[in-house]
């Protein structure tokens, strides 16, 4: 079975909307399924995901690989993820350029890496191993961040570019994350976009942040901000009308509202080249 093509602007699947989607089958270009919430084999959650995948093109997006960690990979995590992918046939699997585990603990929060040559070597080897385990090329997402390490010697765009080239993986550019990090660390988000190799980028994410005054917080709890729409337009002009996905995880709105946000992204595709 070949996966359905992922085209246009989709939404992240949330449990609140599953029944409605399965009952009404509204036209949605594609759905991103949060793999971490569907990893119990043979569970009712997986039943839902399988049914969704029968009707819509899907991708799998996760937070738990802990690609940047130093402890060995969790074998069971990869086995379960691989088994889920074998059932859903996602067009691709993505996770983040970050770490979520150390010292036997799991943060369940995306923690940033120090941007050094040494980290690049380490993460490249980890992504290669993850790709081997999952038997496919991975799509890696940039995270939003609130701190920079003393030892960081490279910019985030230098780091992510080097990792993608050497690990030979694809990139999921979260335009909101770039904007949030640019504000928090006072860099130019356009420079970030301009230095990412065009052919590496597979997908965009859009989400809403919260302005905390001293910093922007990536809460996925608001509509996409105007400035992020602006940055998105530049991204479209540089990378083309790539598949785009709206993430919404706090104050989750109705399905209609969520789809309206995705529709705005579709309109941006049209206007970006006008």
């Amino acid at each position: 079975m070949t996966p359905n093509p992922i085209l246009g602007c989709g939404i992240g699947l949330r449990f609140q909307h599953i029944d409605q989607i399965l009952a009404d089958k509204p036209p949605i270009p594609w759905l991103e399924i949060l793999s971490d919430n569907y990893l119990t084999p043979g569970s009712v959650q997986q039943d839902y995901a399988i049914e969704i995948a029968q009707h819509y093109p899907v991708t799998l997006h996760g937070v738990g690989m802990s690609l940047g960690a130093t402890e060995p990979f969790n074998d069971e995590y990869f086995q379960r993820l691989k088994a889920l992918a074998d059932q859903l046939h996602p067009a691709w699997i993505s996770d983040h350029l970050c770490w979520t585990s150390a010292h036997g603990w799991v943060s369940h929060d995306l923690l940033p890496l120090p941007y050094t040559e040494e980290t690049i070597k380490h993460v490249v080897q980890r992504i290669r191993e993850a790709q081997d385990r999952l038997e496919r090329r991975l799509v890696i997402e940039n995270v939003s961040s609130y701190l920079q390490y003393q030892e960081s010697a490279l910019t985030e765009w230098e780091f992510i570019t080097a990792v993608a080239e050497e690990a030979d993986c694809k990139l999921l550019l979260d335009v909101n994350n770039i904007y949030v990090s640019a504000f928090n660390h006072d860099f130019d988000p356009c420079r970030y976009l301009d230095s990412i190799p065009i052919e590496r980028v597979q997908q965009f994410h859009l989400a809403g942040y919260e302005d905390k005054g001293t910093h922007l917080l990536d809460t996925h709890g608001h509509p996409v901000s105007d400035s992020v729409w602006g940055l998105y337009k530049l991204a479209l002009q540089r990378f083309g009308a790539l598949p785009t996905l709206i993430e919404w995880d706090n104050n989750i709105p109705s399905l209609e509202e969520l789809l309206a946000e995705a529709h705005k992204a579709t309109e941006a595709h049209i206007h970006a080249f006008a």
Partner: peptide
């Protein structure tokens, strides 16, 4: 100690954002 102080937030406040976020999740 391993985090840069930038702008109006101290390095401790920056680590604190992560502590809040991990706890909040």
């Amino acid at each position: 100690k391993r985090v840069k102080a930038q702008g109006s937030l101290s390095s401790e406040q920056r680590v604190g954002i992560y502590r809040n976020s991990a706890h909040g999740i």
